[in-house]
Design a protein around this nucleic acid. Structure first.
Lengths: 229, 229
DNA sequence: GTGGATTGTCACCAAAACGTCACATTGGCT
DNA sequence: AGCCAATGTGACGTTTTGGTGACAATCCAC
């Protein structure tokens, strides 16, 4: 979910406020005080999202938005407009130029990040959501259910993701580091031994259905999910 | 007659106009400005009806329609095409791809809702006329009434839409974000935790008939309606 | 208007889940 | 056998998550 966001805003106070907020929520914040500067930065860094103030010195925000949306190179970058309260017509015109959303000032940090999240979510690649089955053990991402030979298995969120990953990549050894990247996400730091503990919890949860043997330890290498002993 | 309608239309002015009109007639409006976005939202929210503009940036409307109708997952969702006046051949081609109806722009709100109503009645009898029933709990969209094993259940409008959505999409886990999109519509901004509160209110209303256990919490994922423990 | 119903948000609490550590156990090596 | 590194396992303190009641704003019918 971490993304690079370009903030185009001439008021330094608001600029900093937004940038701070973005960093808080795990994004990378770039700032530009003018349309010209923004233009260059876009070409250079290809941000994942642009926050554009309505009022800009020189070129107006709407003008700039139109420019962005008419350029094939920048057209696909999601755009959120910042408008002052009550400028309803501006809002409409802003959306007409192709903005994906708008936020009226003053806005709460929470609202802003919610809208950013929503816009980014729609761009995010969708993961495959098919049911997986290995040796009588079935995991369904849609219903979020795990069943071993009929009876259901209770898992916590992390154990669920861990099993999901192992089942979609069976027969293959995964190092603790790889598992941390794939299951926890590479933006958080946790001890490698934590993986062991979750493997343990997963195995215990699979015991009632005799499926705990599926999760195997490969000494010096990592873990593997396999049918064979 | 209440349904979730996805509006795929790149012109925000028309987008908002339609969305407003839909809300007026008691539907939940979702909007998407591009085919990609629409694709994503369809998978997430499973709308009851799609309003598709003929002209779209990137992928053309007819291309998108063909894609929808070739996918087993989305094939059964009713589709209404929006075309500009006089494009008779387009109309024909639109219908050939599997659209259920078409409306020529400019159209009156009244005409649009009439056609929506007609398509919903024709294509999705379970949505408009038949009542939904799960485990002795019956919800009737026409009379707007909910009965649990004979005795009636009192629900507010939002709780009703929430239960309706859950009952028409059972077993599947819905994240708070998905529920906000599907039940509230993506035109409004509300906190995610608001969903919790309405789930709570729904459960309380279902207590007298012992049906409150149907609404299940899936930690770290969202909520689910299911008979199974 | 007035009063009731509905809605969104918040604060507080309990339970669940998590990460880390200490210690036990295992397995391979000489 | 004895040693050492790697892994298993239980416990513990902390963080996260969801349940719940209260409250203010809004809407609507009267």
């Amino acid at each position: 979910m971490a993304a690079t966001v370009l903030v185009v805003e001439d008021e330094p106070a608001i600029q900093e406020l937004i940038a701070f907020n973005l960093k808080q929520t795990g994004h990378v914040a770039l700032t530009a005080g003018s349309a010209e500067l923004a233009d260059r930065m876009i070409k250079e860094t290809l941000p994942d999202l642009i926050l554009l103030d309505w009022m800009l010195p020189g070129m107006s925000g709407i003008e700039f938005a139109r420019k962005l949306k008419s350029d094939a190179y920048t057209k696909s970058i999601p755009l959120i407009m910042l408008t002052a309260r009550g400028e309803e017509q501006d809002k409409v015109r802003g959306l007409e130029t192709g903005a994906d959303d708008y936020v009226t000032k003053p806005f709460s940090p929470r609202e802003l990040s919610a809208r950013i999240k929503a816009v980014l979510r729609r761009r995010a690649p969708q993961m495959t959501e098919d049911q997986v089955e290995v040796a009588g053990l079935a995991l369904d991402p849609v219903t979020h259910r795990v069943t071993g030979n009929g009876s259901s298995v209770e898992l916590g969120p992390t154990e669920f993701r861990l099993l999901h990953f192992l089942m979609t990549h069976p027969e293959r050894v995964h190092s603790r580091t790889q598992l941390l990247d794939s299951v926890w996400g590479n933006q958080v730091y946790v001890e490698e031994r934590t993986v062991d503990v979750h493997i343990r919890r997963l195995r215990r949860a699979l015991e009632p259905t005799q499926h705990d043997g599926l999760v195997q330890t490969v000494r010096g290498a990592g873990y593997r999910l396999s049918q064979r002993a």
